[in-house]
């Protein structure tokens, strides 16, 4: 539990660094960092519960998409301002690195295995954001329809 809290703090502060170099408006920086921290914690909890890594990435990305959309409504900002820094902790930087390392070591079997894993992680992040984006679009048009009917 304390481990999870520590991971949240690390991911939060790491995302804060991205918020600085991407020049996120000052007032939105903590929110963007929160999105990043929550995404990473979701990923971590999913891995702890025994899902495969790509599925955990998918769930983490869903969390990032969802919290960014909520934040964009509350703060009246574009959702991208939260998604761009927020999704970065999930991006498989380590996977890409170990794939490259295996190629340098001449261990092509290992390179293929980690490479496929990395691509699957990247793909599931994309899928997570896509699914959440689509759900939000559907909800938006549904509520617009209801409003039109009641008006």
């Amino acid at each position: 539990m304390s481990n999870l809290f520590l991971e949240f703090i690390f991911a939060f502060l790491g995302t804060f660094g991205f918020a600085i170099i991407f020049n996120v408006p000052l007032r939105q920086m903590p929110v963007a960092s929160l999105v990043g921290g929550l995404g990473w914690v979701t990923y971590h909890v999913a891995v702890d519960l025994g899902t495969t890594v790509p599925i955990a990435c998918f769930l983490g990305a869903c969390m990032v998409g969802l919290t960014s959309d909520i934040a964009s409504r509350i703060r009246k900002e574009a959702a991208t301002i939260f998604v761009i820094p927020g999704v970065l902790p999930l991006v498989p930087g380590a996977g890409t690195y170990y794939t490259m390392l295996a190629i340098v070591e001449g261990n092509l079997d290992k390179a293929a295995a980690t490479g496929v894993q990395t691509l699957a992680m990247a793909g599931s992040i994309a899928l997570g954001l896509l699914v959440i984006g689509t759900v939000i679009q559907i909800l938006r048009s549904a509520t617009a329809n209801i409003r039109k009917k009641t008006a």
Binding site: T80, I84, L88, V91, Y97, A126, L129, T134
Partner: peptide, 22 residues
């Protein structure tokens, strides 16, 4: 090295790529 290389991960391009396809 992984930590340092994370700085250069193209977060903007990744997110925008997905949102553009969507």
């Amino acid at each position: 090295l992984i930590g340092v290389l994370m700085i250069y991960v193209p977060g903007g391009a990744i997110t925008l790529c997905i949102r553009d396809f969507l």
